[in-house]
Amino acid sequence: MSDRSVLEGTILRGKAFEAIEGRVILSDGQIVGVEEEPVESDDVVVPAFVNAHTHIGDSIAKEAGEGLDLDELVAPPDGLKHRLLREASHEETVAAMERSLGYMRQGGTAACIEFREGGVDGVRAMAEAAEGLDVDVVTLGREEIAAMEAGDGFGASGARDGEFGRERTATRKAGKLFGIHAGERDPDDINGALDLDPDFLVHMVHPEPIHLDRVEDRNVPIVVCPRSNLVTGVGTPDIAELASRTTVALGTDNVMLNSPSMFREMEFAAKLSDVPAREILAMATHHGAEIADLNCGVIEEDRDARLFVLDGDSDNLTGYQNAVRAVVRRAGVADVREVVLQTAE
């Protein structure tokens, strides 16, 4: 028997997020119809988010490290987060990650791309934390090739920390995802990162013209995390310039430093850059899905039924004049009425 349901309201349809009045029809984990017609609902139906860069293991150390610089906070192997991760028990780490994933789900996040510390054990702990949840965690192992083999790919810390040639070759042979931090504190590691032919770069706060040309020539996607960059004092990315060169997605980075809320990340990115709201919403949804090869992030037929519903008559949203801007610049977790995270079998 088909598992069929209907969501009504203002639908943000397609990759352009066209705001139409109507209904979305879901069946067996898939969007099977988007119908435009008058309905009696104040709801706003939005494609679920894809958080394209997380460090969820940091959930055991929220708001630790006040006054420390980037290296003191997160640099391997002796940055504060790495010491705290080593000191935490397996049970503490898993429980904290599970709570963060639950919060992400409440806020309409369908998936994340996780750079997971701790080698094979870290990858397995992430799988344990996600078990029973319907949030897709694309886990990129770190520190050893075996972690890549146990997960969904490899997440490199940066070209200044090692050469990563063996890891890149092994990841390519495995047909898995390879991402690397680059240009976070300065431009010195960007060419080294690009030489590895990564599937995507993270941060790119300090690119020089030659780097932007290389990114554009190779069409290398970039994940930006502007709240994290501001907190760690490295500056903020030129999101508009990056978006003019390649595909840009949004991530929330370290849970140690920021809540994994895509609403907060979108609002900050939009107001920091003045990039149009539709483009910011794309960065938070289907751009990340494309990097991770997920069939979500867009409300259209044959996509997985992964979306959420906002109460358009909440105290925060009532009276909005532009649905996309309201989602990007104003909405929050408290406005979420329902989250639907289903995947076609």
Rank of each mutant, 00 (worst) to 15 (best):
R329D: 15
E66W: 09
E131G: 08
H211R: 10
F263R: 03
V74I: 13
G151P: 02
G192V: 14
A75T: 08
R329S: 15
S5C: 06
I210G: 15
A270M: 01
E114G: 01
F178S: 06
D43I: 05
A249I: 08
P260W: 10
Y103G: 14
K15Q: 14
G65P: 10
Y320V: 03
A48Q: 05
I299N: 12
G14L: 00
Q30R: 15
A61T: 06
I280K: 05
V231C: 13
D217Q: 11
V74L: 09
G288N: 01
M104F: 00
A331K: 01
E300H: 03
N316E: 14
F263S: 01
L212A: 07
V138S: 04
V339K: 00
E216T: 09
A243N: 07
G9Y: 00
P276R: 11
G162W: 04
E114Y: 01
T247R: 10
T171V: 09
E300I: 06
V231Y: 15
V248I: 08
L84E: 05
E87V: 03
G235K: 13
D69H: 09
H181T: 08
A292K: 01
S157W: 09
V32A: 03
F200S: 10
E143V: 06
S27Q: 14
I280Y: 11
V309P: 05
A129R: 09
G9V: 04
P77I: 04
F200D: 05
G175V: 09
A326W: 04
H286I: 11
A156K: 02
A125E: 15
V6R: 00
S41I: 00
H55W: 03
I239R: 07
A88T: 11
K62N: 13
I25M: 03
K62W: 10
V336S: 05
L177Y: 05
V24H: 00
E40V: 02
E36Q: 07
D197P: 02
N322D: 15
M126Q: 07
K62T: 14
V137S: 04
K173G: 06
E290N: 14
D315W: 13
G79P: 01
V202N: 00
L26I: 15
E66F: 10
H211A: 14
S41D: 02
E36G: 03
H287S: 10
K15D: 10
P237H: 10
E117P: 03
E114H: 02
T252K: 00
L310N: 04
P47F: 06
A16W: 07
G33D: 12
D28Q: 04
G158L: 07
R185Q: 07
Q321V: 13
R337E: 10
Q30H: 05
R337S: 13
V333I: 11
R227Q: 15
R13N: 10
V34R: 00
I113C: 08
S314C: 09
A334W: 01
S314D: 08
I222R: 02
H53G: 08
M97E: 15
